[in-house]
Amino acid sequence: MAKTPKSRFPSGAAWDYFKEVRGLLISSHANVIETFEKKISHNIRNDGLNERNDNAILKINLLLDTLRTETLEYYFDENKIVKIADAFTKSVGNNIVQQFANQFRSVLGVDPIGRDSKLLDIITAANKENIAYIKSIPENYHNNVETVILQGVRRGRSNKQIADGLQEAYKTSRTKAKFIARDQTGSLVADINKAKYEQSGLKGFIWSDVGDGNVRDKHKIFNGKRFLWSEGAGTEGLLPGEDYGCRCTAEVDPDELLNI
């Protein structure tokens, strides 16, 4: 029997997703830093609250409102977000469907059943979900920016301390974007695999981890073992890719494939 090609986690799709969102975030952050340095920092005094500082907070609030609007309407506008989400879901979908087809063909010598309405529904739902995730990134970023600046003014922090806080706000949002990209990739991989396997009449799969030092211990135990799609693995009934940040994949069981 021919050996089936090993499934690969679509890391490239996850990286492209993160890279695109990070690019929007970098541009938005640069705008925040420029506004802070040119329009906000000179309004800050480091001697505690007083009348001038109260007035400064009013001015700063207006500038912060403008920054948030610019980010949401320009840097993270709807068209850019939809384009990123659409490219991501299509990339993952095409990758996983092709890998499944290659495994199917390696055993039976024929292509599996094509796309169906369930797969299209999964892609549509994933698009909607990822649009919401991407939108949450600038919202959370600006919430942190406002906290850093306004608390800094009220507590008499230096411009340097506030600038450092703004950099941390950016790093936090960048980390969140990276996590979302990998987590959503795994989740979509799991959903598409389940749909394709079940569409083809396959009730089970073989769990396959990526084999590096970041694999969870419980996923290492699952590696190479067969599970049913209807039950999943372990007491939690997990599917490959479902766990937070999971990069595991499903392999076709050649024995089952020969008997469908």
Rank of each mutant, 00 (worst) to 15 (best):
F9H: 05
G12A: 02
G12M: 03
A13E: 09
A14S: 13
W15R: 15
V21C: 04
L24C: 09
A30C: 11
A30M: 14
A30V: 12
V32I: 08
I33D: 03
E34M: 13
F36Y: 06
N46W: 13
L49S: 12
N50D: 15
N50G: 14
R52W: 10
N55T: 12
N55H: 13
A56P: 03
I60G: 02
L64V: 02
T66V: 14
T69A: 12
L72F: 12
E73K: 14
Y75F: 15
F76W: 08
D77Y: 12
V82K: 14
I84Y: 02
A85D: 06
A85Y: 03
D86W: 08
S91A: 07
V92K: 00
Q98A: 10
A101C: 04
Q103G: 01
F104I: 02
R105N: 09
V107D: 00
L108E: 06
G109Q: 04
R115F: 00
D116S: 03
S117V: 03
L120W: 05
I123C: 01
T124G: 04
K128G: 11
K128T: 15
S136Y: 09
S136W: 11
E139N: 10
L150I: 12
L150T: 12
V153F: 04
Y170P: 14
K171V: 13
T175V: 15
F179H: 11
R182F: 13
G186S: 05
L188Y: 03
D191K: 14
N193M: 06
N193A: 04
K194H: 12
A195P: 14
K196Q: 07
Y197D: 06
Y197I: 07
E198G: 06
S200K: 02
G201S: 04
L202K: 00
G204D: 15
V210N: 08
G211K: 06
H219N: 08
K220P: 07
K225C: 04
G237M: 05
G237R: 05
L238T: 02
L238G: 05
C248Y: 04
E251A: 03
D255F: 00
E256D: 01
L257E: 01
L258P: 09
